[in-house]
């Protein structure tokens, strides 16, 4: 249970959280993004191999608002963003909450590189707005937003720190283990950095790189070893997307995981979607870095696992 004393002790962090959310809204409004709100309950979450949706009266609590956001894009909305609650079953840890807050933004007629530029400008603006520019002190590290934000491909990072090259469809267990133990701890010091060009087999909704189909145009933003955001150029081929969803659902069925209905409305909308890119950023983690908090419990009034 979260006590009144614990709540009182979080006041400075919750004030910083409020300020960060104000700065996020200011950033996107200044760039003519439309703030939208999509349903928290959904009939058909995006099938992902390792994300478990929480059931809710026959439907599911949305693990991410992404499919609704892309339907808006397909309807002609050019630039949209949302600050949304997201729910994922059985994710509790220092940097995981089963209920958390996502910032998602999407750009029509853009690719993943435009999103990376947005990340740089957004986080720089937040650090200026919080009067923490350019240096941020976090858990014994001195971080910075100024200077070059490095980009490293998954292949380069694994060759350098894990001693092997993952290829287009690496063994998931080996990949995840080495990512967590050897690669992630080196990413994002002192400036945030991008891990790019994910293996093609690890990007359920991303476009493959033109001329290089072994990798997807998917990236993750890391800071201080913490994964902050996952972005990609959207796959806009409805047939390919349906095939990937069906593959994933079949894998989930074989693994004994719950199998969701195919998101038909989304697949239908995809026929009308041209070039686009979108990204999801974990607001709780970003607040944790700016407030020098050890874990997410310190930046959320009521951590979901504590009641």
């Amino acid at each position: 249970m979260t006590s009144l004393a614990q709540l009182a002790a979080k006041k400075a962090n919750l004030q910083a959280r409020c300020r960060i959310i104000q700065l996020i809204r200011r950033f996107f409004h200044a760039r003519d993004f439309l703030e939208v709100r999509t349903p928290v309950r959904t009939r058909a979450p995006a099938p992902e191999p390792y994300i478990e949706a929480i059931p809710s009266a026959g439907w599911f609590l949305a693990p991410s608002p992404e499919l609704y956001m892309k339907r808006l894009l397909a309807a002609g909305y050019q630039k949209i963003f949302q600050i949304a609650p997201a729910f994922r079953w059985n994710e509790t840890g220092r940097l995981h909450h089963s209920e958390f807050t996502l910032l998602e933004w999407y750009r029509a007629d853009a690719d993943h590189e435009a999103l990376q530029q947005d990340c740089i400008e957004l986080i720089t603006e937040i650090s200026v707005g919080l009067d923490q520019f350019p240096l941020i002190s976090f858990q014994g590290h001195t971080l910075s937003v100024a200077g070059r934000w490095p980009r490293i491909t998954v292949a380069e990072a694994f060759e350098r720190w894990a001693g092997w090259c993952p290829g287009p469809d690496p063994d998931q267990q080996r990949f995840d283990l080495d990512l967590v133990t050897h690669v992630e701890p080196r990413l994002g010091f002192p400036t945030p950095g991008f891990l790019t060009d994910y293996p093609a087999g690890q990007a359920a909704l991303a476009r493959l790189k033109p001329g290089c189909p072994e990798v997807a145009e998917r990236f993750e933003l890391y800071w201080a070893g913490i994964e902050l955001a996952n972005g990609f150029s959207e796959l806009t081929d409805p047939r390919e997307q349906r095939r990937r969803f069906q593959d994933t659902l079949e894998r989930r069925r074989l693994a004994g995981c719950s199998v969701y209905p195919l998101p038909e409305a989304f697949l239908d909308a995809l026929r009308h979607l041209d070039r686009a890119a979108g990204i999801a950023l974990g607001i709780d983690r970003l607040v944790a870095i700016f407030t020098n908090a050890y874990d997410l419990d310190q930046v959320v009034a009521f951590p979901p696992h504590r009641d």
Binding site: T92, G93, E227
Partner: peptide, 14 residues
């Protein structure tokens, strides 16, 4: 004990 779950990967319990 540390729970980690990289990107879209699987949950790992270290």
């Amino acid at each position: 004990f540390e729970f980690s779950k990289p990107g879209k990967g699987q949950a790992l319990y270290r």
